Simulated assay, not measured.
Amino acid sequence: MTDARVTPVVIGIAGGSGSGKTTVVRRLTASLGDAHVSVLEHDRYYRDRSDLRLEERAALNYDHPDSLETDLLVEHVRALRARQAVEAPQYDFARHNRLEASDVIAPRAAIIVEGILIFADKALRELMDVKVFVDADDDTRFIRRLQRDIAERGRTVQSVIDQYLGTVKPMHLEFVEPSKRYADIIVPQGGHNDVAIEMLLTLARGLVARG
């Protein structure tokens, strides 16, 4: 499982905002073991827009593929597959800006790539051994996003609603939902489908064990 000669297994976890992706990632990490898993979240890679004022940054469309530096994520996944550590960017969601600091991500037996738009990029998809789409109904996803953005990102109720109606929902319909066709596995009911998740965990353990 830790043989440096073995190419890591890359598992993509996609799905709409609030679908339960983080829950699935946590279940996978716990099942495989922290020492054997590297996680790269796509939303670390929002472009640096420090050239704009806070109010201008807040008005940007963060749910369009162009808002993310996906080329850098592709570069990092390739490096991890080659057993090279990477410096993943950090992002401040309250101020809508990339930080100067970065996190060193070490190569491990399994690389989990997570994000709403990871299946929308062909180069990124082609690096994945398993592509999982976490599905949930729109109401559930909106409520989860509302709770998260208020509790963790310092947003107001109205700002979350405005962003959801203005960009999140339209971009979900244009980019996220269509990307589901690329998935190898679809997990209905978000992160609470124990049967589907257990099947995924069994598959992931087998892939990592085979190396």
Results as ranks from 00 to 15, higher is better:
residue 1 M to E: 13
residue 1 M to S: 12
residue 3 D to I: 03
residue 4 A to Y: 08
residue 4 A to D: 12
residue 7 T to Q: 12
residue 9 V to I: 15
residue 11 I to F: 02
residue 13 I to M: 03
residue 14 A to N: 12
residue 14 A to R: 06
residue 15 G to S: 06
residue 15 G to H: 03
residue 23 T to P: 08
residue 25 V to H: 00
residue 30 A to Q: 14
residue 32 L to K: 03
residue 34 D to K: 13
residue 35 A to M: 05
residue 36 H to S: 13
residue 38 S to I: 07
residue 38 S to T: 13
residue 41 E to G: 11
residue 41 E to D: 06
residue 41 E to S: 12
residue 43 D to H: 07
residue 44 R to Y: 04
residue 45 Y to R: 05
residue 47 R to I: 13
residue 48 D to T: 10
residue 49 R to D: 04
residue 50 S to Y: 00
residue 51 D to T: 12
residue 51 D to H: 11
residue 52 L to H: 06
residue 54 L to F: 14
residue 58 A to G: 00
residue 59 A to R: 13
residue 59 A to G: 04
residue 60 L to C: 09
residue 61 N to F: 04
residue 65 P to V: 06
residue 67 S to W: 01
residue 68 L to Q: 11
residue 70 T to I: 15
residue 73 L to P: 03
residue 74 V to D: 14
residue 74 V to C: 15
residue 85 A to Q: 13
residue 88 A to F: 10
residue 88 A to D: 09
residue 92 D to Y: 01
residue 94 A to W: 00
residue 98 R to V: 07
residue 99 L to A: 12
residue 99 L to H: 03
residue 102 S to F: 10
residue 104 V to A: 11
residue 107 P to R: 00
residue 107 P to M: 05
residue 110 A to S: 05
residue 110 A to E: 01
residue 110 A to G: 08
residue 111 I to W: 07
residue 111 I to P: 02
residue 111 I to N: 02
residue 113 V to F: 07
residue 114 E to N: 09
residue 117 L to Y: 02
residue 117 L to C: 03
residue 119 F to R: 00
residue 120 A to W: 03
residue 120 A to E: 06
residue 124 L to W: 02
residue 125 R to D: 01
residue 129 D to V: 04
residue 129 D to M: 04
residue 129 D to L: 07
residue 130 V to K: 02
residue 130 V to A: 02
residue 131 K to E: 11
residue 132 V to G: 09
residue 133 F to V: 03
residue 133 F to N: 06
residue 133 F to S: 01
residue 133 F to G: 02
residue 135 D to M: 07
residue 135 D to F: 00
residue 135 D to N: 13
residue 137 D to R: 10
residue 138 D to R: 15
residue 139 D to P: 00
residue 139 D to W: 14
residue 140 T to H: 08
residue 141 R to C: 12
residue 141 R to N: 09
residue 142 F to D: 08
residue 142 F to A: 01
residue 143 I to A: 10
residue 143 I to S: 00
residue 145 R to E: 01
residue 145 R to M: 06
residue 148 R to Y: 01
residue 149 D to M: 01
residue 152 E to S: 09
residue 154 G to Q: 04
residue 155 R to I: 05
residue 156 T to Y: 10
residue 157 V to S: 04
residue 157 V to T: 11
residue 158 Q to R: 11
residue 161 I to A: 11
residue 165 L to P: 00
residue 171 M to E: 02
residue 172 H to Q: 14
residue 173 L to D: 15
residue 177 E to H: 12
residue 178 P to I: 06
residue 179 S to W: 05
residue 179 S to L: 05
residue 180 K to W: 09
residue 181 R to T: 15
residue 182 Y to N: 07
residue 182 Y to L: 02
residue 183 A to N: 10
residue 183 A to P: 10
residue 184 D to C: 06
residue 184 D to G: 03
residue 188 P to I: 06
residue 189 Q to Y: 08
residue 190 G to L: 12
residue 190 G to W: 14
residue 191 G to K: 07
residue 193 N to E: 14
residue 194 D to Q: 14
residue 195 V to H: 14
residue 196 A to Y: 08
residue 198 E to R: 15
residue 199 M to Y: 07
residue 201 L to C: 15
residue 202 T to C: 13
residue 203 L to F: 05
residue 204 A to E: 08
residue 205 R to N: 15
residue 205 R to H: 12
residue 206 G to F: 04
residue 208 V to G: 00
residue 210 R to W: 01
